[in-house]
Design a protein around this nucleic acid. Structure first.
Lengths: 193, 193
DNA sequence: ACCTGAACACCGTTCAAGT
DNA sequence: ACCTGAACACCGTTCAAGT
């Protein structure tokens, strides 16, 4: 049977979930698909492009969200539901290889614009939110995966300490609040002019 | 002459500046130092640890800053002044290998606590700020380096579009503002109780 | 059009053995 | 204590040649 892009991405996602990003290599993927390593390069220009496609598979469903908080929560959930999902998407976003992350950015910018920011500032606000979600979740997931294969967790020091959801929402709240503040001060200076 | 940690880190930093992070390999570094690759493993447990030491060299001077805005501006400047500095520090921070980034985190948390947040929330606020600075600067630096070896920049669309400093300060303002908001609402709810 | 085979030019890490 | 030499087990990518 002919190798399709879909097959490749599907198998790559399985490999990712079972063995993690470090073991998701072109050679290992080719072996799993019973093709030669070179075959993958007929379907994808390079590894980055392939990883971008896998990232977009991980992010499936996220683009349907609207509103800053909704988008961010769905994004984080998607990242956490695959081994090394946050790291993969973070790298693909940085490399400009994730179409879904571009849509996410646009959705966040639209939401920010709704609060009264002009397009340029709304873009900046959107990126700031994305940096937060990716940074937070990469961090969270590495800790989760580290002490998943480890000792029993030490006794919680505070409710906040192990309620990752609450921690996530706090930072998100800081951002949403800050954006509202920036929007209203922009409106204020406009109304003065 | 005996190989010292300092020599290794110094040469690594030169390699980083001249050829970038992708070409900063243990083998290449050993070649540059005229030692066998194995020699590096007597001084450093692994590549991550060595990169952490290089990251801390890049961050030299940043720990002296006080106040959120001051710390962030110095941090960004340090990252921008070395090839792939942002990516290196970002990775080392995520891996928990940068002592200076731990100090930066502590300094930011202290500044956040000064606004009236309790210790746990101040920590979260500090991390949020770090995610922003690293995310923003990784992005900025990859664009800078991409079109450094490229075409002349297209004509600027707006003042904001190519004033990276202003863009950086905007996001920083959003965060500082959001943190102030979180602090004052915490104080308010306390005074109600 | 799609894939194989084989090569090219590398990696990080380990470890017996040397000095 | 500090380092070499050599090995182990891999990488991503290219490309003539096959079907």
């Amino acid at each position: 049977m002919q190798l399709t892009k879909r097959d490749v991405v599907e198998t790559a996602a399985t490999l990712l979930d079972d063995y993690g990003l470090a073991d998701l290599t072109m050679r290992r993927l080719a072996r799993e698909l019973d093709v030669s390593p070179g075959a993958l390069y007929w379907h994808f220009a390079n590894k980055q492009e392939l990883l971008g496609a896998v990232a977009d598979r991980v992010l499936d469903g996220v683009q349907a969200a609207v509103g800053v908080v909704d988008v961010c929560i769905r994004l984080r959930n998607a990242l956490l539901s695959h081994t090394d999902g946050a790291e993969l998407v973070s790298a693909s976003f940085a490399a400009g290889q994730s179409e879904v992350m571009k849509q996410v950015l646009a959705a966040l910018a639209a939401a920010a614009a709704d609060t009264g920011l002009d397009a340029a500032h709304a873009q900046l606000a959107a990126r700031t939110v994305v940096y937060y979600v990716l940074g937070f979740t990469v961090d969270e997931q590495s800790r989760l995966q580290w002490d998943a294969a480890g000792a029993d967790l030490p006794d919680e020091q505070s409710v906040l300490a192990d309620d990752a959801d609450a921690r996530f929402r706090f930072g998100l709240g800081v951002l949403v609040n800050g954006i509202r503040g920036a929007a209203s001060s922009a409106t204020a200076s406009k109304s003065v002019v």
